[in-house]
Design a protein around this nucleic acid. Structure first.
Length: 268
DNA sequence: GTTGAGCGTT
C-alpha cells in the first residue's frame, strides 16, 4: 500500500463557465456544479467557416498554449464540415486561457464561439445512432427530430465499412514537428488524380465496423460463432503450421541474406 | 503511437 497525501488540485478558475456570452455557458450537458477539471483541454470552436482548415484554426490558438490537436468533424456521409471544430490543448489551463481569449474573436471574418468541450469524442456506434435517420413508419407519424439531416436515402445507411484510411480524408492537422518536417514520401501521397474530397468516406470492400476498445458488443452475433473469434484449428501436428519461431525471419531488417548482398566479398 | 464518426451546422 502506498500512502499518498490527497493533494487537492485547485485549478485557477476562470470565468468561462458563467455567462459565457449566451453560447458559451449553457452546455446543457453536464451540470456546472461538478468541479471536475475542464477536461483534457478540448475546446469547441463554433461558427467557423466551412472552408476553414485545421491549421488555420490552430495558428491563433497556439498562441495561448501548445495545441495538441485540431479536429474538424465532418458529416459522416456527406463529408462536409459542420461548422465547428475541436481544439485540443496539451494543458487544460492553457486551453482555458485560449477559450477565454478566443471566445468571441473574429476569425476569418466570423465571430467564433469558443467553449469548453464536453468530454471526448464519440464512438462510431453512437454516431451511427445519431446520424442515422429513423425511417418514418408507414402508418403515419413522420418523426424527423434531427435537424435537416434526413439526407436522401439513395444511399443505404449501411455500415460505413469503416474503411476510413487513417492517412486519408483526415481533417485534423498533425502536430507540426519541431525538427525538420520530413514526411515520408509514402505518406504524402498528394498525387491523387481523383482527389475525392467531396466523396463520402464510405467505401465498399472491407466491412469492418471498427471495433473500438469496447469489447462487450454482444449484439449482431446471431450466429453465435463470433466472427472476431479466431478459428483455432487444431492440427494433428499441432506444431508450427504457419509460423516457426525459430526458423522464420530473424533479422530485424527483414532481409536475411542481406549480408550476402551488401557485403561485397572482400577477397582481398 | 492512439483513435477522428466529437457537443454547438442552415
Amino acid at each position: 500500500m502506498r500512502r499518498y497525501s490527497p493533494q487537492y488540485y485547485s485549478p485557477p478558475r476562470r470565468s468561462y463557465g458563467g455567462g459565457g456570452g449566451g453560447g458559451g455557458g449553457g452546455r446543457g450537458r453536464s451540470p456546472p456544479r461538478r468541479r471536475k477539471e475542464q477536461n483534457n483541454g478540448s475546446l469547441l470552436v463554433r461558427n467557423i467557416p466551412l472552408d476553414c482548415r485545421a491549421e488555420e484554426l490552430r495558428a491563433p490558438f497556439e498562441r495561448y498554449g501548445e495545441v495538441r490537436d485540431v479536429y474538424i468533424p465532418k458529416d459522416y456521409y456527406t463529408g462536409e464540415p459542420r461548422g465547428f471544430a475541436f481544439i485540443q490543448f496539451v494543458d487544460s489551463y492553457e486551453a482555458a486561457e485560449a477559450q477565454y481569449h478566443m471566445n468571441g474573436k473574429i476569425f476569418a471574418g466570423r465571430e467564433i464561439s469558443v467553449v469548453v468541450a464536453a468530454e471526448t469524442r464519440k464512438r462510431p456506434e453512437e454516431m451511427r445512432q445519431r446520424t442515422r435517420v429513423r425511417e418514418p413508419s408507414d402508418h403515419g407519424g413522420r418523426r424527423s427530430s434531427y435537424y435537416g439531416r434526413s439526407r436522401s436515402r439513395s444511399r443505404s445507411p449501411r455500415y460505413p465499412s469503416g474503411s476510413r484510411s487513417r492517412y486519408r480524408s483526415r481533417s485534423y492537422s498533425p502536430a507540426p514537428r519541431r525538427r525538420g518536417d520530413s514526411i515520408s514520401p509514402s505518406r504524402r501521397r498528394r498525387d491523387n488524380p481523383r482527389s475525392p474530397r467531396d466523396l463520402p468516406p464510405v467505401r465498399d470492400g472491407d466491412r469492418r465496423p471498427y471495433s473500438p476498445g469496447y469489447d462487450n458488443v454482444a449484439g449482431p452475433n446471431e450466429n453465435g460463432d463470433g466472427y472476431d473469434k479466431k478459428p483455432m484449428r487444431e492440427d494433428k501436428d499441432g506444431r508450427d503450421h504457419w509460423r516457426s519461431p525459430d526458423r522464420a525471419s530473424r533479422s530485424p531488417s527483414g532481409s536475411r541474406s542481406r549480408s550476402a548482398e551488401l557485403s561485397p566479398a572482400r577477397s582481398r
